Amino acid sequence: MTKIPQKILVEFENNFFEYDEEQIIRFSKNNGNIFAVVNDMCKEVYGLYILDENDPTFICHIFYITKVNQNLKGFGLQISPTQERRNQFVSIFSAYIAKNFQDGSKRQVETVFNTFQNMQILTFEQNGYDIIPELPNKKASIAIKYNGKGIVHIPRITNEIITNNKFEKEFSTVQIPKIDEHFVYLMLNRRNGYFKIGKSKNSRTLKIREKTLQSEEPDMIIVGLWIVKENYEKILHMEFKDKRLRGEWFNLDETDLDFLHNKMKKFACI
């Protein structure tokens, strides 16, 4: 493992902070996800909030809150779009969370990192920043003025489950559901790495790569499709309730996708 230079660690520690239980309980009154952790409805929550939308520096806090032996634990990191080592700080923060409150594996560190990066992408884009996953060259700035407030470099770690064809395949046709059956599908938004678990009664032959919401989201693609009788959409929603973002959208990691792949294998309609 590469040793982090002391100078960077000092800078990181200047932006790292811990919440006490009183602060967490106060936050839970205005945040349903934190409320769920406080009241034992889920084990952890990741989040991001903006300190002042009118502040040109656009300072934000990303945070992680959980419960250990009935004691609330919360940690945060102050970041901003123009922060020089923001991505590196988020990486260190993610490793701290994964190693102290999860299994500490490389996979888990990557999952936590991508979670925080996806939150930044959504928040910064909604507030007028342009996001790029790669810098055009080594000398490029992470906050070059463009059409909006600036260009922000936010890389993510590629999800190997999707690139190794466990789900994504060259489908051209699928079986047609019977009258008492329907489709359950897994859709990936390649822009932010989030997954939608939905259902459809549409009995027409589906072309997986073409059946996307391209008019609204060009980076949407169906990566899993099954034919079922039971209401498996709701079953899967309950299975991944701790990973729910909103509605039918979930922040699934590699372990979740392995589980889903094995659970739904018997319903494959390819």
Results as ranks from 00 to 15, higher is better:
F183N: 08
R107A: 10
N118E: 14
A36K: 15
I59T: 14
K3V: 13
V90P: 02
P81R: 01
T163W: 02
L188Y: 04
A36R: 13
E168A: 08
W226G: 01
K138E: 14
N159Q: 15
M119L: 10
T158C: 07
G150C: 00
S91T: 09
K243A: 15
M119D: 02
I179T: 15
T115N: 10
Q214F: 12
N71A: 03
M264S: 09
F35G: 07
K263W: 09
K73D: 08
N118V: 05
K207E: 02
D103P: 05
P56W: 05
K3R: 09
F259G: 06
M220Q: 09
G76V: 05
I4T: 13
S91E: 15
Y49K: 03
N165G: 08
I50Q: 08
I4E: 06
F89S: 04
N71C: 11
Y96Q: 11
F195K: 00
V38Y: 02
G148E: 08
N127T: 03
V223E: 01
I144S: 14
Y232M: 00
N69F: 11
K169A: 14
K263M: 08
T163N: 11
I235R: 06
T255Y: 02
K229M: 13
H153G: 03
Q214M: 06
N39G: 11
E248G: 07
I131A: 05
T158Y: 10
G32N: 15
C269Q: 07
V184T: 01
I221Q: 05
T205I: 15
Q102D: 09
I221W: 02
K7T: 12
L48K: 01
D253W: 01
K263I: 12
K106W: 04
Y64R: 03
Q6P: 00
N164E: 11
A268T: 10
V174W: 13
I79W: 01
D180N: 11
L252V: 05
